[in-house]
Design a protein around this nucleic acid. Structure first.
Lengths: 124, 124
DNA sequence: TAAAGTGTCTTATTATAGTAGTACAGTTTT
DNA sequence: AAAACTGTACTACTATAATAAGACACTTTA
C-alpha cells in the first residue's frame, strides 16, 4: 500500500511531504483511477498526525483534481491515464518555460541553452 | 541609478524583492565591479524600510559573493566579468538539472524531453 | 579630534503558516 | 433507527519568518 517517509524534523512541512508522496504514487500509476485512499482518521493514525493535517492534504489534492471525496465513503483517486499524461505534460512545459525565462533574464541566448542542454542530456 | 519596484503587499518578502532587484542589476551588468551601493541607511530611507531589512539584503548578497562591505566605507559590487559568467553558468546548470530530475520523476524519457525542448525553443 | 558617516549586534514586535483539539454533519451498514 | 464510520468547520496553540527599534563600534573626513 502507500509508503511514506515522513520527517517531522524537516523544514518542509509534514502536510507537503504527505501530499508529494501521494502525488508521486499517482504520477507513477501506483495509485490508479478509482483506488480508495485510507480515511482521514486512518491515515492520521498511521502517520501519527492530527486528522486536520491529513484533511488539508486531501483537500489540496482534491482542489488540484487528483482525488475526490464524499462524506461517508471517503476519498478516491480520480485520474484517467490520458488526462494524467496531459497533466504531466503541462506541468513539465510550465517548468521548462520558467527555466527559459530565467536563462534569458541571465543573458543566455537560445544557442547557449541548446548547447548546455545537449551537454547535460548526453552526460546523464 | 538603482531602480526598485517594491510591493509591500506582495506575499514575497520585501527583502527578497530588494535582493532580487540588485542581483538582476549585477547580472545584467548595470551594476559593475567596484560600483558603490547606497549605504544601508540611505537605501532604507529611499525604500521606506528599516535599516535592518536592507542590512539583511546586503549581508545575504555578501554571503553569496556578489558584494563586499566595510565599516565606514559601505558596500561595493564585487564581481569580475569572468567570474560572473561562471556563476551564471553554474546557476543555470543547477536549474536545468533540477528540471531534468523532475521530468524523469514524472516518467519522461530523454527523447520526450528533447522533443519538448525543441518545440518550445523554436516557438519562442 | 570631533562629528557624521558607515556597518553590526541584540532584542522586541508582528504576521503568518503549520499543526492540533474538539465538536459538528452527513453516509453507510447492520 | 442506531452505531460506526466518513468528511468538515471552528477555534486555538505554537513556531518561525519578516520587520523594526535602538544601542554599539568602527572609519572617514573636515
Amino acid at each position: 500500500m502507500l509508503k511514506f517517509n515522513i520527517d517531522a524534523a524537516s523544514p518542509v512541512p509534514v502536510y507537503q511531504q504527505v501530499k508529494q508522496a501521494i502525488t508521486l504514487d499517482i504520477m507513477a500509476n501506483r495509485l490508479k483511477d478509482g483506488d480508495q485512499l485510507p480515511s482521514i482518521r486512518t491515515l492520521a493514525r498511521i502517520l501519527k498526525l492530527n486528522p486536520n493535517t491529513v484533511a488539508k492534504v486531501y483537500y489540496s489534492l482534491e482542489q488540484e483534481g487528483y482525488i475526490e471525496g464524499r462524506r461517508g465513503s471517503g476519498y478516491q483517486v480520480k485520474c484517467q491515464k490520458g488526462k494524467m499524461d496531459n497533466l504531466k505534460l503541462s506541468i513539465i512545459e510550465h517548468e521548462f518555460k520558467a527555466f527559459l525565462e530565467k536563462a534569458f533574464s541571465l543573458g543566455f541566448t537560445k544557442e547557449d541553452i541548446e548547447k548546455l542542454m545537449r551537454r547535460l542530456l548526453t552526460n546523464e
